[in-house]
Simulated assay, not measured.
Amino acid sequence: MTNVGPQKAQAIVAYRRQHGPFLRVEDLARVKGIGTATVERNRRRMTVGAMTAPTVAPPRRAVPAPVPRR
């Protein structure tokens, strides 16, 4: 996010831990140090709500080439 450094990010995480997940992007303006201008500047970069970790497919193993029989 633009204009959100480590301290503001920590404030967002602390607020979320205390109050639960944000339901709307506008709710981020309730965090100390995050104003409506910051929310509007970053609106397209943000998502809110309870999220689960993305599932990652295990890496594909290379299949060895068949060995020609003699």
Rank of each mutant, 00 (worst) to 15 (best):
P59T: 03
D27F: 02
A57W: 06
R41Q: 12
R16A: 12
A9T: 14
M1R: 08
P58Y: 01
P68K: 09
V63E: 04
A11L: 12
P6R: 13
T52Q: 12
R70G: 13
E40M: 00
Y15G: 06
M46L: 13
A37N: 13
L28V: 07
F22R: 02
R41M: 04
M46C: 06
T36V: 05
R41I: 02
L23M: 11
V25M: 00
H19V: 03
P58E: 01
Q10Y: 14
V13S: 11
P59K: 03
Q7F: 14
I12D: 06
T38Y: 04
V67D: 13
P64L: 08
M51D: 00
V31Q: 01
R24D: 05
V4M: 15
L23D: 11
T55Q: 11
A11F: 13
T47F: 00
V31W: 01
V67Y: 07
M46W: 07
P64C: 01
G5P: 14
M1G: 09
R69N: 13
G20D: 04
R61F: 05
T52F: 06
V56A: 12
K8Y: 15
E26N: 03
T55R: 10
T52H: 09
R41E: 10
A62K: 02
I12R: 05
P6H: 10
T52D: 07
M51W: 05
G5S: 15
D27Q: 10
R45A: 07
T52V: 10
G20Q: 05
I34W: 04
A14G: 12
P54W: 04
T47P: 01
I12E: 08
P6C: 10
T38K: 09
M46I: 11
L23S: 11
I34A: 01
G33E: 02
R24M: 09
D27I: 05
Q10K: 15
R41V: 04
N42Q: 07
V4Q: 10
G5H: 14
P66R: 12
V63N: 00
P6M: 13
A29D: 05
Q7M: 15
V13M: 09
R41F: 01
